[in-house]
C-alpha cells in the first residue's frame, strides 16, 4: 500500500539532488557549443590508437612550441601504441637538462623514457614574454580543466572564424566563436595540411582538431580505459550482490508479521 508513494518520493529526491549538481557543473557564461561523437564517450568508450598517434603528432609539431605537457613523460607514450624502441627514439629527439655532474655543472643530454615531456619555456615569465603577455596553459589536464571537456576543445580549435560585423577585437587578440568572450590571445594554431600524417589520413583542419583533442583527452586521464573496464565488472558484481541480499532479506523477513 505504500509502494507507489515511496517510489515517487525516491524519484523526486533523486531528481532534486541531481538537478542542482548538474547545473553547478556547467559554467554560467560559456558559449554553447555542439557536442561530438568521441570513441571515448560512454561507459564502454575506448581511445582510438590511430587517432591518438595522429593527435600526438599534431601536439608535438604544433602545440608543443608554446604549450607544456607537464604530467606526461615519454614512457607514457607506450599507451598510444608505440613500442619501447619507438618511445626511446621519440625521447632521444629532445634534450633535457641533467646534473650536476662530477664537476658540479648542469649539462644537456638526450631524453630517456623516464623523463617528463620538456617544457618549451624555462618558466612562466619567459612563456608570457614570448606570447604577448599571455601564458599558454599546460595541456596535460585540459579536458578535465575546461567546462565542456573534449567538445569544448574541439569547438575552440575549429572555431576561428572571420570576425563578425560590429565585433571589436583588441590588439593582438583573435576572434573565436566558442571562447568565452570571443576574444582569444592564441592565433588559430591549426592550418589545413599543417602536418603530414604517416597513415595517409588527410590532415584537414577539423581532422587535426579532432585528433589532437582525442590526444588531450588521453593525456588528461591515461587510466580512463582501465577505469571503465573495471567499472563494468564492479557494477555487474554489485548488481549480483544486490540481488542476493534482496532475496536473503526477503527470506529472513518472511516470518515477521
Amino acid at each position: 500500500m505504500m509502494g507507489r508513494p515511496q517510489k515517487l518520493i525516491i524519484l523526486l529526491l533523486t531528481v532534486l539532488v541531481t538537478v542542482p549538481i548538474a547545473t553547478t557543473a556547467r559554467s554560467a557564461e560559456s558559449v554553447a557549443f555542439p557536442t561530438q561523437e568521441w570513441s571515448f564517450n560512454g561507459p564502454l568508450g575506448t581511445f582510438n590508437r590511430g587517432e591518438l598517434q595522429r593527435g600526438f603528432q599534431v601536439y608535438k609539431e604544433v602545440c608543443a612550441t608554446c604549450h607544456s605537457l607537464n604530467f606526461i613523460s615519454f614512457r607514457n607514450l607506450t599507451d598510444l601504441g608505440f613500442n619501447e624502441n619507438e618511445v626511446k627514439a621519440i625521447a632521444a629527439e629532445f634534450q633535457v637538462e641533467d646534473g650536476p655532474n662530477n664537476e658540479g655543472d648542469m649539462f644537456e643530454r638526450a631524453a630517456i623514457p623516464s623523463d617528463m615531456w620538456p617544457s618549451p619555456y624555462p618558466n612562466d615569465n619567459a612563456a608570457r614574454a614570448s606570447n604577448n603577455g599571455a601564458l599558454p596553459p599546460d595541456l596535460s589536464l585540459m579536458v578535465d580543466a575546461r567546462a565542456g571537456g573534449a567538445d569544448y576543445l574541439y569547438a575552440l580549435l575549429s572555431g576561428y572564424h572571420e570576425t563578425p560585423q560590429g565585433k571589436e577585437i583588441g590588439e593582438g587578440m583573435y576572434y573565436n566563436a566558442y571562447y568565452p568572450g570571443n576574444q582569444i590571445a592564441m592565433p588559430s594554431p591549426l592550418v589545413e595540411d599543417g602536418v603530414e600524417y604517416g597513415d595517409g589520413t588527410r590532415a584537414t583542419l577539423v581532422q587535426q582538431a579532432r585528433d589532437v583533442t582525442a590526444f588531450l583527452a588521453w593525456a588528461t586521464e591515461p587510466n580512463m580505459e582501465q577505469r571503465k573496464r573495471m567499472g563494468v565488472m564492479v557494477i555487474i558484481f554489485l548488481l549480483v550482490m544486490t540481488g542476493l541480499f534482496y532475496y536473503s532479506k526477503k527470506k529472513i523477513w518472511s516470518d515477521v508479521h
Binding site: L238, V240, M241, L244, F245, S248, K251, I252
Partner: peptide, 19 residues
Amino acid sequence: QPTRRDFIHVASVSAAALG
C-alpha cells in the same frame, strides 16, 4: 536457525566476502 541452512544466505555472505 534459518540463516545457517539457507543457500541464499551463504551465497550473499560469500559475495560480500569476495567483494
